[in-house]
């Protein structure tokens, strides 16, 4: 392979791991969006909380990150239930902007609470598959990135299976499309919504653990993630799972490749420039979802 192509391939490979993590955050966001129509701007802060949960667990239990993953996800699922009771239930009959701002306010409170408890300094979480690098022919991939990639792939496929192939998934989609009819058919809509929040929070917890090892966690580390998830979900079509994943991967590849050839400042500028161009060409995103009209 010529050197130029090799550099490019390496940049793509580097971007893939972060892209997978962004995708998982975006998936959690879409899950709640589809179930309730609510925009959860605290999804990023839940990732942060999951990161701190991982740090705390790793302090108490010195076992590999892989074993902590289910623990963190279970704890965060519980938090998701609490969160839905606070941020969704009281606001479900109000204009959507109230729910959106409520999640912003709770996210802010979470950030500040972690700042008061743990300080603003970065903290390192557990490594999923140890440290070091793995060679894939001429390309290198860190074990941390590999761990993120594999875990995200597994969780993403599990979610796809859950939504696409199970009774639960069918009911969830039915109640998202038409909650009134679903309720009339005896589908427990409220319980399904609570479960969506739990799943979204568990996904956030997983990402929190995965990122806390190689990239550390700070009280504000959710902010960057939610912005990227928001972009990913919007350019993906506002409600499309496939679109959210594609959007997230595009963002990460864009960041990695443009930063690899120009600079990270240029990457940010170019990313938003590209998003604007994309929206001009496709005003309802890459894979317009029926929910798009609800936006």
């Amino acid at each position: 392979m010529p050197a130029e192509l090799l550099t490019f391939a390496q940049l793509v490979l580097n971007g893939l791991a972060l892209g997978a993590a962004y995708a998982l955050v975006a998936l959690g966001f879409v899950l709640v969006l589809n179930a309730t129509g609510a925009v959860n701007f605290a999804q990023g802060d839940m990732v942060m909380l999951g990161g701190y949960a991982a740090v705390a667990l790793a302090r108490a239990l010195p076992v590999p990150g892989l074993l902590l993953l289910p623990l963190v996800m279970a704890a965060m699922a519980g938090f998701g239930l609490l969160f839905s009771a606070l941020a969704w239930r009281p606001f479900r009959h109000r204009p959507p902007i109230f729910g959106l701002l409520a999640t912003v306010a709770l996210g802010l409170a979470l950030q500040e609470a972690m700042n008061a408890l743990e300080g603003a300094g970065p903290q390192a979480g557990p490594a999923l598959l140890g440290v070091g690098e793995i060679r894939l022919g001429p390309l290198g991939l860190s074990r941390a990135s590999l761990g993120i990639l594999l875990a995200c792939l597994g969780l993403g496929l599990a979610q796809g299976w859950l939504l696409g192939r199970t009774q639960f998934g069918r009911r969830l989609r039915a109640s998202a499309q038409d909650p009134v009819t679903a309720r009339a058919l005896g589908i427990p809509v409220d319980r399904l919504i609570a479960v969506s929040f739990m799943l979204a929070a568990a996904l956030a917890g997983a990402v929190g653990l995965l990122l806390s090892g190689p990239y550390f966690v700070t009280p504000t580390s959710g902010t960057d993630l939610i912005l990227r998830a928001y972009i990913a979900v919007a350019i993906g079509g506002w409600g499309s799972l496939r679109g959210a994943v594609v959007g997230a991967l595009l963002i990460a590849l864009f960041e990695s490749v443009v930063a690899g050839y120009a600079s990270s400042v240029a990457a940010t500028a170019a990313l938003y420039g590209a998003v604007l161009l994309l929206l001009m060409v496709r005003p309802s995103g890459l894979f317009p979802a029926p929910l798009g009209r609800r936006a």
Partner: peptide, 22 residues
Amino acid sequence: VRRLDGHFFALATLGFAVLVRL
């Protein structure tokens, strides 16, 4: 971006805000 609606419009204006900050 005048034709955009809802959150697509929100995203476009967010892009403008990010560029201003940059």
